[in-house]
Amino acid sequence: MEHLSSVPPRSGLVIFLNGTSSSGKSSIATELLAMLDEPYFHMPVDAFHAMRSRGDVPPDRLATVLHRTWQGYHRAVAGMAAAGNNVVMDHVLSAEWRLTDCLALFEPQDVVLVGVHCPLPELERRERERADRPPGLAARQLEQVHAHGVYDVECDTSRSDPRECALRIRDFLTARPTPTAFQRLRAAR
């Protein structure tokens, strides 16, 4: 059994997949986990929503419950990375405060911000096929999710399959340029 005192401190890397619902983030994350050399944890925001009890939340409290869930999610990812764990984060920056919160919490040099793009007609087709998302969710998210406009890596899941996107991200990791997208975004604020 390894003693904690023998574990050297380090910061973990966060591969931050940002895109609308149904854009392909989870499929890319699955491919990444299969091909990365070091251990990574896939931490999708959907998993945090799924942890919540199934009781009905009164409509006047729903926004607060969701906001706290996202805040907790950001802090959980930041905590895993601060403990030296690598994380593939699967998120939707469909509200400005989410990006602001992440910029304040994460070590900007240790984040690879990935834009996961997909055109609206394809997003709508995927939503119809999935049937586990409200119709029009991706359309409502589309304008804000990429509004910050700065990424380290971008992919279009209507043109590349999840494995091709994951390979592009993996290849980017070998020589990450600085400043990172998170460093540029933080400096701009």
Score class of each variant (00 low, 15 high):
S22P: 01
S22L: 03
S22V: 10
S23M: 05
G24W: 00
K25F: 02
S26H: 04
S27Q: 13
A29Y: 03
E31A: 13
E31S: 12
L32P: 01
L33F: 07
L33A: 13
M35G: 10
L36F: 09
L36D: 12
L36S: 12
D37C: 04
E38C: 06
P39F: 10
P39S: 13
P39V: 12
Y40P: 08
Y40D: 13
F41S: 09
F41P: 03
H42N: 09
H42M: 07
M43F: 10
P44R: 05
V45C: 06
A47T: 11
A47G: 08
A47C: 06
F48D: 06
F48R: 09
F48G: 07
F48V: 15
H49K: 15
H49A: 11
A50D: 09
A50E: 06
R52F: 08
S53H: 14
R54H: 14
R54T: 15
R54M: 13
G55T: 14
D56A: 12
D56E: 15
D60R: 08
R61H: 12
R61T: 11
L62K: 08
A63L: 12
T64Q: 15
V65T: 12
L66A: 12
H67E: 06
H67T: 08
R68V: 08
T69E: 05
T69P: 02
Q71S: 14
Q71Y: 13
Q71W: 11
Q71R: 11
Y73S: 04
Y73I: 08
Y73R: 02
H74G: 12
R75G: 11
A76T: 12
G79K: 01
M80A: 14
A81R: 00
A81W: 00
A82P: 07
A83E: 11
G84Q: 07
G84I: 12
N85L: 15
N85T: 06
N85D: 07
N85E: 10
N85V: 10
N86L: 08
N86S: 05
N86R: 09
V87A: 08
V87H: 04
V88I: 15
M89S: 07
D90Y: 00
H91W: 10
H91G: 02
L93I: 00
E96Q: 13
E96F: 06
R98P: 04
C102P: 01
C102H: 03
L105V: 04
F106Q: 01
F106V: 05
P108L: 03
Q109E: 14
D110Q: 14
D110N: 15
V111E: 01
V111Q: 00
V112M: 07
L113C: 03
L113K: 00
V114Q: 04
V114L: 05
G115H: 02
V116W: 03
H117L: 11
C118M: 02
C118G: 01
P119F: 06
L120M: 14
P121M: 01
E122I: 07
E122N: 04
L123G: 00
L123I: 02
L123Y: 03
E124I: 10
R125L: 14
R125N: 11
R126C: 02
E127L: 00
E129P: 00
D132Q: 09
R133K: 14
R133A: 04
R133W: 08
P135Q: 13
P135S: 12
P135M: 06
G136F: 07
G136C: 06
L137D: 08
A138S: 14
A138K: 00
A138H: 01
A138D: 01
R140S: 10
R140I: 00
Q141P: 03
L142F: 04
L142N: 00
L142W: 01
E143Y: 09
E143D: 15
Q144S: 06
A147F: 03
